[in-house]
């Protein structure tokens, strides 16, 4: 039961990664690409959590937490660059 649900979830989140990568490549404007990168790191966190449940190892949360922090910092830095033309004034 759990393994079937995990397989379906892996496929769905993998499709989500593909869709947001398509938007990242296609996106007509810069904020679109930043939004796609934001979605990609959230999808990566979801994949890591699923992998942790699948392997039964609690080791992957450290990686998920690191990705969450670095992704947020990256999004904020890119948005600040678009807004002000500079990141740290």
């Amino acid at each position: 039961m759990l393994t079937v649900a995990l397989s379906i979830a892996f496929v769905l989140v993998g499709a989500a990664v593909v869709l947001s990568a398509w938007r990242l490549l296609r996106g007509p404007s810069a904020p679109d690409r930043i939004l796609a990168l934001d979605t990609l790191y959230i999808n990566a966190i979801a994949l890591l959590v699923l992998l942790g449940i699948h392997l039964g190892s609690a080791l992957y949360f450290e990686a998920a937490l690191l990705i969450a922090m670095m992704g947020f910092v990256g999004t904020v830095a890119l948005c600040k660059y678009l807004l002000r033309g500079d990141i740290i004034e």
Partner: peptide, 17 residues
């Protein structure tokens, strides 16, 4: 819970695309 979470993740990216 796992299926609901994966479905919502997929729908979010579908909306993005």
């Amino acid at each position: 819970l796992i299926l609901a979470g994966a479905l919502f993740t997929f729908v979010g990216s579908l909306g993005l695309a």
